[in-house]
Computed example of a mutant assay.
Amino acid sequence: MKKILLILSVFLVFVSVYSFKTIHENKINSEVNFYNGSLKEAVIKAKKEKKMIFLDIYATWCGPCKLLKKTTFKDPELSDYLNKKFISLEINGEEGEGKEIVQKYQLKGYPSLLFIDTNGNIVNKTLGYYDGKQLLEIVKEIK
């Protein structure tokens, strides 16, 4: 009987440690995977993968932009949906390519969140901070 209890105890400890490790790893990995490239490269990738583009135009000094990165883009449901359905890209609107994008799409502030088709056309855009649930509702309406 003692042997069975010992085996059962060891098994329960193993399951608990494994479950904690798996939950912890899922939390670490549950964030939006942003593509590291230009908008032009993202459009090519989006065409190849038959996805749309989610583009976050931010500024380094922007409080709501920082909050999006810290909270919203780490929301598990939102990140899972974006990672499956979109090529996500984040670009500083005050540097390099970002300045051109701000001008081209006549953006008025930060953060500007754009949904772009594979031809580079805006399907939808919004301005400002959203929590994960709010942004997921917007994202799911994009066709």
Rank of each mutant, 00 (worst) to 15 (best):
V13K: 02
Q106I: 03
G98D: 07
K47Q: 15
Y18L: 15
S19D: 10
I142P: 13
E100K: 11
D56H: 04
K45N: 10
S30P: 04
Y110D: 02
G109R: 07
L8W: 11
K84Y: 03
F73Q: 02
K48D: 14
I138G: 00
V32C: 09
E49N: 11
Y35M: 05
L67V: 12
Y81A: 10
N83K: 08
G120D: 13
F20H: 15
Y110C: 00
S9N: 13
L5M: 13
V15G: 09
K47F: 07
S9P: 00
L39G: 01
L114I: 02
L135P: 02
Y58G: 06
A59D: 07
K48S: 15
E90H: 12
E137G: 04
E97W: 10
A46C: 12
I101S: 01
D117S: 03
I53C: 04
K69S: 14
G128Q: 05
T60L: 07
C62N: 07
E94A: 02
V123G: 01
D75K: 02
L12G: 05
I53V: 14
E90W: 03
L68A: 09
L55D: 00
F20T: 12
P111G: 00
H24A: 13
G63S: 12
G96M: 03
Y110N: 03
G98M: 04
N83I: 10
